[in-house]
Design a binder for these strands. Structure first.
Lengths: 210, 210
DNA sequence: ACTCGCAAACCGACCAGTTGGTATGTTTTA
DNA sequence: TAAAACATACCAACTGGTCGGTTTGCGAGT
């Protein structure tokens, strides 16, 4: 077990994950974060030297959250690695049926605001994205072997591609204030992966013709 | 011809496109924009009631810029609409070889910061993304007919999917501070479109095995 | 051609509110 | 009993935005 953190620190990280995901990093003030966490500024700067440091901690917490959420999801019980991959993608697609604020990515939001001005926060966001993406690599490679699929691509690039598509889907959902386009783009991703592995492309429920 | 705008207004819009793309909308102050444009605050608020209104104007200018850039690109001369689509995707992939600040998307950046708090700016970003995506729809539909491709997807959803993948690619590039992952994801997108249209999947130059 | 009138363009000092961060405490806990 | 945790008052810098004023472009009248 990880050593128990002090309540204020935990609460601040939780507040950052929640508020930054809604408003963005720069639009969220230290006072906002303290208010949301029910904590004073003194506590804030006792635990974090700067606001950016809380962002970095939030990115780390986000990574743990993702590992927990996707590492213990039901589809992980599938014996065939390809079923685990397709289960993962279906799971992520189905998340897009909920409210926008509940499926978007904290670090995808933060990295756009920090990449040019806050190298340490940018690096924490990269670590979070890459760490999650790389959890898919072993299954992709195993699925390739098991199903005899070669193709001119690497498992790592496909793993990162899934993350890119999802990040892009979040942007479409935010832009339209509607997750429909995000669901459609997730369906395209699923169709792509099925084609790569020579599976029949099944009728998806998410798209409407007309 | 559009009526000539006043110099300060043009300069401010140009400054917004440049600086916001680098730093993000919230991290860019009105003074930053005035400095970059070589204009005073008085001029700023003469032309734009608020900072958000400049953001909206910048989104509009970005849309015109995209229409100009992609509407007159060489690949548009291809007779087969499928060649135009593949030409577009190759063009966008090749843009990813330059510096990060030169291929990222202004409105994709702004929408993440505005969707929850600035509905009018969010709407302007959506308009810019959708307008550009929809320029692909006619060619996709024509290519489908010409090449006898049916498939369980709409032209509009595929057009939006290309934009989602590119937006996601920008996020990967920013996160890694390196465009390699973005290039790889663009290669996956090209491979997907080729597979949808039953074309042989050619060896791409962007990915490395190992 | 000249100049008058006037609106649009532009300027820069100024403002009140907010920002991230600090200094100096008091309380809790091991 | 000392250190870690937390609280409060405070600050200088900066924020988006305002305001009264000056300059510029330009059509009309002569």
């Amino acid at each position: 077990m990880a050593p128990r953190q002090s309540p204020a620190k935990e609460k601040l990280i939780g507040a950052a994950v929640k508020v930054v995901r809604e408003k963005g990093f720069n639009a969220t003030s230290v006072d906002d974060l303290c208010r949301e966490a029910g904590v004073t500024k003194g506590a804030f700067f006792h635990h974090f030297p700067t606001k950016v440091d809380l962002g970095i901690a939030a990115a780390g917490a986000w990574k743990l959250h993702a590992n927990e959420l996707f590492g213990t999801a039901p589809y992980m019980a599938h014996e065939d690695p390809l079923d685990r991959i397709l289960g993962y993608l279906a799971f992520r697609r189905d998340m897009l049926d909920g409210p926008i604020a509940e499926f978007t990515c904290l670090v995808g939001t933060m990295v756009q605001e920090s990449y040019d001005s806050q190298p340490s926060l940018r690096a924490a966001c990269q670590d979070s994205i890459w760490d999650h993406a790389l959890t898919l690599v072993d299954d992709i490679e195993a699925a390739r072997k098991r199903h005899g699929v070669t193709g001119d691509w690497t498992a790592e690039s496909l793993a990162l591609h899934t993350q890119a598509v999802l990040q892009g889907a979040f942007i479409l959902a935010k832009a339209a204030d509607d997750p429909q386009a995000a669901r459609d783009t997730a369906d395209h991703l699923i169709r792509y992966v099925r084609m790569l592995f020579n599976l029949p492309v099944i009728r998806s429920e998410g798209e409407h013709h007309g």
